[in-house]
Design a protein around this nucleic acid. Structure first.
Lengths: 228, 228
DNA sequence: TTTAAAATATGATATTTGTCAGCTTTTCAA
DNA sequence: TTGAAAAGCTGACAAATATCATATTTTAAA
């Protein structure tokens, strides 16, 4: 079994504040899992009872609206932790997490995390800080959703994806999303997303072949995103 | 000077987890302020350097979008605390807070709160819980903004306002908002908000005279909010 | 490999929402 | 008290977006 002390998640998450002894305990009680592309990490309404450390892969975090449409709230990359909120608020999850590609994750049971939260102030403060940052992005997203046009949101999302996942040698953004997923990120109909992507392509601002998308003109895309 | 131990804010916020000694220290270093209707509690980009306890009054928490339109993210009632996020993330505020009526607030400087966060695990865990809850509502708001129509959002907002602020004897919701503020809550143009309010009035679902708004038919409004 | 299902694409059209203009009512300070 | 400014209201129209229909391409299972 792999040790948590060596894990990528430890480097990038609040877990870096755990002591050696705490890490050993976590190592001892964690379970490892492979989640295949398209499978649920967890579902809306589910008791999670712990947190997931993402060692490899990416998942989309989404929520069903009352209209029956899915909204993707966030994409979570390897190195990150997910599920800590429901654990802290002690409620069933209000979100679903679905693997976008094959994932390797570890599951740490609730009791261990809660114990560390209570005993280790540095850890607890760092989790607090992470949540404060999440709240800030959530606020920004609320404003964007409420006030920006679909075109602006698409432009911004493409830039965010490039920033978050990087690009391959050819400038292709390193994440493969269906048109439906893109639409569900920006909060629009799939057809609208497709149309606007085609429009950006026609204008030479982006290029794509299937799910391989490359941004050719970042500046122009930023202009659109910021409303000039 | 009033003691924090008697304060309404203590009853309803995480401060209830502070010990007697901690409360005394807070009492000693806090400053009291009157904020008049329309004045800023704090502004976007400002270093807050502490938290505000709202003893009386209501403020709107908003953010300017890049399009130059204001979005109201939340309304904060007396008994609550505001400003803890920027304090925790150690950044300038990304939000503005403006008094909707005359307010009485106390300001607790950053150092005192940070000290309590580090020393008092129960307090820190409760702040964590509060933030987890805020994140959940933020997620819900993102989904609503992205997926619901303006009409749905208006219906939902009216129900939320009634729930949050209660009603007077005549069924009038106990908060006075301008049409512009209502529009900025639901994320639409003022004219659209006015039009939809008129429509609801014409259908007998709500009644209003100026800023006095009463819901006559909660069920029907819920149907609209939930998309039936 | 074949083939059915899913994803992508595009046109036509309907609906929603925003914008602009002009008018009335309310508010508030001189 | 009054008059200017702000807020509220409504109509006409424009722009953005959703929906429906249908065709094409891609994917994946048999």
């Amino acid at each position: 079994m792999n040790k948590c002390s060596q894990c990528i998640v430890r480097q990038f998450s609040s877990l870096k504040h755990l002591t050696k002894e705490e890490l050993l305990r976590v190592s001892a009680c964690k379970t490892s899992k492979i989640i295949k592309k398209g499978e649920f990490l967890f579902e809306e309404g589910e008791h999670i009872n712990g947190v997931f450390c993402i060692k490899d892969g990416v998942c989309k975090v989404s929520k069903m609206s009352e209209n029956g449409k899915n909204q993707i709230i966030n994409l979570i990359n390897h190195g990150n932790i997910i599920g800590e909120r429901s654990l802290i608020s002690n409620e069933v999850s209000n979100l679903s997490a679905i693997a976008l590609n094959d994932m390797t994750v570890c599951f740490i049971p609730k009791d261990e995390i809660m114990r560390d939260l209570q005993m280790n102030a540095a850890f607890s403060l760092d989790v607090l800080k992470t949540m404060a940052t999440s709240l800030k992005s959530a606020d920004n997203l609320i404003v964007d959703m409420a006030q920006k046009s679909v075109k602006q949101r698409l432009a911004e999302s493409l830039l965010n994806l490039k920033e978050k996942f990087g690009t391959s040698s050819q400038g292709v953004i390193d994440i493969h999303l269906s048109r439906e997923d893109i639409a569900n990120i920006i909060g629009t109909a799939t057809e609208s997303a497709i149309r606007l992507l085609s429009e950006l392509k026609k204008k030479g601002i982006i290029e794509f072949k299937g799910k391989d998308i490359a941004i050719l003109n970042d500046q122009e895309l930023e202009k659109i995103a910021h409303g000039f």
